[in-house]
Design a protein around this nucleic acid. Structure first.
Lengths: 250, 250
DNA sequence: CGCTTACTTGAGTCTGGTCAAACGGGGTGG
DNA sequence: CCACCCCGTTTGACCAGACTCAAGTAAGCG
């Protein structure tokens, strides 16, 4: 599951391929210098691997460099709820250092590369780099905002609206990273993942997605979904879309 | 809706009635001094009043000193989803300063007293008080953790389990504040609030609650609910309960 | 080639929604 | 003081969206 991490041979923060993207705010030299120091290595995990486990008192936190994953919780009897998806630029595992232990698990959907940070050094970040501390809070507030949206969706939208919302949401997040600019245009998840995100059964999810496909809004492919009419999905969902500018990249 | 705020005549942070409670971590003198400076006044709102509005670019953030409220979002057609409840000690309105504008609204369930903070000074807090900055992040991570729990509940639990979860959740939060130690033992919400939290209709919520009452787990009172058998509710819900120690009070 | 995983489809069931009506308490204006 | 109204709660009857069970297809892989 876990390849050894190395400091040499991994991407330096100054050359991070994500940082130049429009979504991310610019860091100054001091911030970048700290980041390079803060990052202790990289971690590669296979698709399907568990990155963080509920209950663990993890020694690390991570930022996703590439690949998709998802956060989830389960009930005793196995019912699973996917809480959110993690994409490149997302900070994960903050609950470990801050609250003491993880309250959810994280799993990779594809091979994922992670930047590794030590929980110990997080205090140094807060001590010496207020702007970065603020950024960590920014990221936490953003996650909360996404969860609010998901809650509204699961609680109050119909199955079709929920599906439209989720696909719009993921499409917009991809868009911000230009992941759909080149090769990867597909959202790399199965219908079971969608079902476990929307609080539906996989059978009903399938029927709902087929209707969206019949209308020409999406095309379902093995292990993934292509968005053909993002605007139509957005209208159907009744969602405003993501409001986000100057997102920090820790 | 809004009474004028005054700095004199309001509770100083050193004498904050909440701070001595076991749930909250102790603050040192320097932290307390900053808090007294940070707090610019108090605000009293009536029950039913709106404290913060979605879309607003609010100039303040608040900590609840007394009273209950709730955070919510609505869809165009009026469908409402309650995201979480706010109780004394909760920091609200962080989204304003951090993300730029509020993505949800907050409404008072009762007369509520709030400590008022200026969004401008939040940067000073991060600049000069790393421990408090860390605390703000702690609170954001805690909120996220609660939302994760809610999502699991709405997405994957049955109506009865959801109701049991929500009532357990609110009961535990009351407990931590000793609100049930003295006069107020009731959870001060209507069945419509519960319905809008659980993603159910009010009719079905009523039937579900009556079943819980018939089993002797709860007693419903006008505009409120008393918990008679918290352990039974916890078992029914399949929830672990809140894990929380040394919560900061900003 | 056989196994597994993902997706599809049909049939019957049930949880939870909608519509409708009624009750009861608290507040208000006459 | 009483009539009225409104809000929150309760209950019944009926309906429908979503679930379960079940079976079958198709693609990928060792």
């Amino acid at each position: 599951m876990i390849a050894p991490m190395r400091k040499s041979g991994c991407v330096a923060c100054e050359e991070c391929p994500l940082r130049p993207l429009d979504t991310f705010r610019e860091f100054n030299d001091k911030e970048l210098a700290f980041m390079r120091e803060f990052k202790t290595g990289e971690l590669r995990v296979d698709g399907g691997a568990t990155i963080l486990v509920e209950g663990a008192h993890s020694a690390h936190l991570y930022t996703v460099l590439s690949g998709w994953g998802f956060r989830y919780k389960t009930l005793e009897d196995g019912r699973r709820q996917i809480l959110n998806y993690v994409l490149p630029g997302d900070l994960i595992g903050l609950q470990g250092p801050v609250l003491g232990e993880m309250q959810h698990s994280v799993e990779a959907l594809q091979p994922v590369v992670l930047c590794v940070f030590e929980r110990e050094r997080l205090h140094r970040l807060f001590q010496n780099h207020p702007s970065l501390a603020y950024d960590v809070t920014w990221l936490a507030a953003r996650e909360e905002s996404m969860l609010d949206d998901h809650l509204l969706s699961i609680g109050r939208r119909t199955a079709a609206e929920r599906a439209a919302y989720l696909l719009s949401f993921l499409h917009q997040r991809m868009d911000a990273l230009n992941l759909n600019g080149d090769v990867e245009k597909r959202i790399p998840i199965t219908q079971t993942h969608i079902a476990d995100t929307l609080g539906l059964s996989s059978v009903h999810t399938n029927r709902t997605l087929r209707k969206l496909a019949a209308r020409g809004y999406i095309r379902w492919e093995p292990r993934g979904c292509s968005i053909l009419k993002p605007e139509a999905l957005l209208v159907l969902s009744g969602w405003d879309g993501i409001v986000e500018k100057g997102r920090p990249l820790i």
